[in-house]
């Protein structure tokens, strides 16, 4: 390397050799840990052809699992969206006592093992608890039923929307809202016409991540579901059961749906980030 080339480089730029090495290491790592498993899932899923794949998907228990997963996501994602907006609004726009505590609470599901999150509901609603038998006397089943799965999913996924919105809202401050109020807008009009459009991309991003996690959650749901085939099995649970029964083709066929969901989420997320960039 000549002196001239050294002069042209900025102090923070590595030499081309080092650059190539770094890129190669990163790509190798990605290939081994990400692309290879991804490839494996799809190749196993379609090992016996598209027909067998389709058979595995429309099998009644698989369909029930898909339906339940969609139902759980359809309930928990909107609820977490409302909660996320409310929490982010409170944290970003107001000063109040216990704010730091609320932020810590929002992060709790991230720091607690999902299995513990599930166990919390078993302790709360199980036969040995106070609430469980009382609710049961009114014919309300929480544990080993859909409500329990929904509760566990909400718990695990509630940080996503709030975490995404807090920095966006803090960044924007309150003057847009104040401007709308001074122009005569009501609180609802201000939210609808000013706040919501300002946060729409961040919100969509948070909802996407929340949805991906809601559909893919295993640990917490596994603890509360009771694994009743065709009734309380979500897609991840159904995959595990099929796999344990050595029904690999069917297990990977259902798994390929979840992977497909992950890929769609990634593409949408990237598209939104590009949109953010302007």
């Amino acid at each position: 390397m000549t002196d001239h080339a050294i002069m042209l480089r900025s102090a923070l730029t590595e030499t081309p050799t080092v650059q190539r090495w770094l890129i190669a290491v990163a790509l190798l790592f990605l290939a081994f840990f990400l692309f290879l498993p991804l490839f494996a899932v799809f190749s196993e899923a379609f090992r016996n052809g598209v027909g067998a794949w389709w058979e595995a998907i429309i099998e009644p228990d698989a369909l029930a699992a898909i339906r339940l997963t969609l139902l759980v996501a359809a309930i928990s994602v909107p609820l977490n969206m409302v909660f996320g907006i409310a929490a982010a609004w409170a944290i970003a726009k107001f000063e109040f006592r216990g704010k730091a505590f609320l932020i810590t609470l929002i992060d709790l599901p991230f720091s607690v093992s999902p299995v513990i999150s599930g166990l919390v509901y078993v302790l709360l609603f199980g036969s040995g608890s106070l609430l469980g038998p009382w609710l049961k006397s009114y014919g309300i089943e929480i544990l080993f039923a859909v409500p329990g799965i929904v509760l566990a999913t909400i718990f695990v996924t509630f940080p996503f929307v709030a975490r995404e919105l807090i920095p966006v809202m803090q960044d924007q401050g309150t003057s847009d809202e104040e401007a709308a109020l001074s122009l005569g807008a009501s609180g609802w009009q201000t939210f609808r016409h000013v706040t919501l459009p300002n946060i729409r991309w961040g919100l969509l991003y948070g909802v996407l991540l929340c949805n991906a996690r809601a559909m893919g959650e295993f640990g917490a749901v596994s603890v509360v579901s009771g694994h009743i085939r065709g009734l309380t099995d979500t897609m991840p649970l159904h995959i595990e059961i099929l796999y344990n029964e050595y029904n690999f083709a069917a297990a990977f066929a259902v798994a390929s749906l979840l992977v497909g969901l992950a890929l769609v989420t990634l593409v949408l997320k990237t598209a939104i980030e590009l949109r953010f960039a302007d």
Binding site: S175, V194, P197
Partner: peptide, 18 residues
């Protein structure tokens, strides 16, 4: 605020960007 009917111009304009 709404009832007072004041025209307030903010330091950083606070225009609605969308």
């Amino acid at each position: 605020v709404q009832e007072r009917q004041v025209g307030f111009v903010f330091q950083h304009y606070a225009l609605f960007r969308h």
